[in-house]
Design a binder for these strands. Structure first.
Lengths: 210, 210
DNA sequence: AAATAAAACGCACGGTCGTGCTATTATGCA
DNA sequence: TGCATAATAGCACGACCGTGCGTTTTATTT
């Protein structure tokens, strides 16, 4: 056995289970992820699956973390190959758009969905979800701040405010996908993104009165 | 019995049940609205509640419609007292913000939540939710179009695009409430709203190059 | 007031859920 | 190869779900 697969049997099937769990959570949402369904999908017994996590909640937390890792790998990791500043910010937005599109017209990002499903249920899951979302927002704000440092963007803008509005754009994009289909949603989000990036790069909102 | 309460016993308790159901759906989401819980909240038996709707799905549809009526009453109805154009658009946004705030930091608009919970479950509920959302978006776009007609807003903007972005703003607002609390969320959304309304009213994005 | 209709209840059924407990099988090390 | 240990299966429990049915209570009409 080589180094990459140097896993004990238990750890290996745990990964297999987690992969199936991620598929289910992607497709049906995190609280449609039941132990029985997951056991069927993994070709195991309920108690076999259960033993790997100890509780349903622990399973859900593991899936949440896996989803967050997937987001990082798919959106942030490729983006850091771009130059700091606007190019990298643009890459993040493109990656995010691409990932959102992969969910299609009738599914949602599992973390965003979990944030809404659990917003009224205090506990570890809600905390974990909010933690991931806060991290996401910070990364966006960081990319904007870098763009300011690089002189790509006006110095008087607030990176956190832009992160807020970018987040809203992606959320609206998800809804537009469901409401009016892919083509229209892509047009809208790209119009909004370029409008926003233009506004960031412009000299001042009212150059005449300067 | 006077005219306002001229309801048969059945219709009256149906309204009572619906009111309790709306409370539950507001607080816990539409699929935490179970017949047993609702029966307890209404002080009735499960079968008593059940008989009024014939199925759980029919109950959920009724609650969805009630929530949409509530939104209209709370947001659109007061807004039509304002003058057409920007004042009315502003009133809609304020009303929407106020309503969103009422849900606080740890609950979501039941229709928006249902849109996400049911995005992967085709059927009458999903259709109804999307119908309400499309209606909402059309109303926003209509208000923007009126503002164009009144000359309050540049003629080259697309009302549907603005409706898209406004929707995103409110969604981001809801998340901001959960992530960072009320004060910060209010500051952000008001900054974003006034920035957007300013952009609508301004002459052109690049007046110097004209 | 009696008769008819509507409304609500009590109860049970079949289903799924998460979770323990015990037995069995497979794995990895001496 | 044999043995300790980890991994999985089997099974049952209690809770909750939606839903149907027969009965009983409450409203409405004659």
């Amino acid at each position: 056995m080589n180094a990459a697969t140097a896993l004990s049997k238990g750890a290996a099937t745990r990964e297999l289970i987690l992969a199936r769990a991620l598929e289910i959570a992607d497709a049906k949402g995190i609280d449609a992820l039941t132990i029985g369904t997951l056991a069927d999908a993994a070709g195991m017994s309920k108690s076999g699956v259960f033993a790997h996590f100890g509780s349903r909640e622990e399973l859900q937390l593991a899936v949440l973390d896996a989803a967050a890792r997937g987001f990082t790998d798919e959106v942030f990791v490729p983006a850091v190959r771009e130059r700091r500043g606007l190019p990298r910010l643009r890459a993040i937005l493109q990656g995010w758009k691409r990932r959102t599109l992969r969910y299609g017209e009738s599914r949602a990002c599992p973390i965003g969905a979990a944030a809404i499903e659990f917003d009224d249920r205090p506990g570890p899951i809600r905390d974990r979800v909010l933690g991931h979302l806060i991290h996401l927002r910070k990364e966006i704000a960081r990319a904007v701040a870098m763009a300011v440092e690089q002189g790509h963007v006006r110095a008087d803008i607030d990176p956190d405010q832009i992160a807020f509005e970018v987040h809203g754009l992606v959320l609206a994009f998800q809804f537009e996908l469901k409401l009016f289909g892919i083509e229209r949603a892509v047009l809208r989000v790209e119009a909004a993104i370029s409008r926003m990036l233009d506004a960031l790069a412009l000299a001042r909102p009212e150059p005449v009165s300067d």
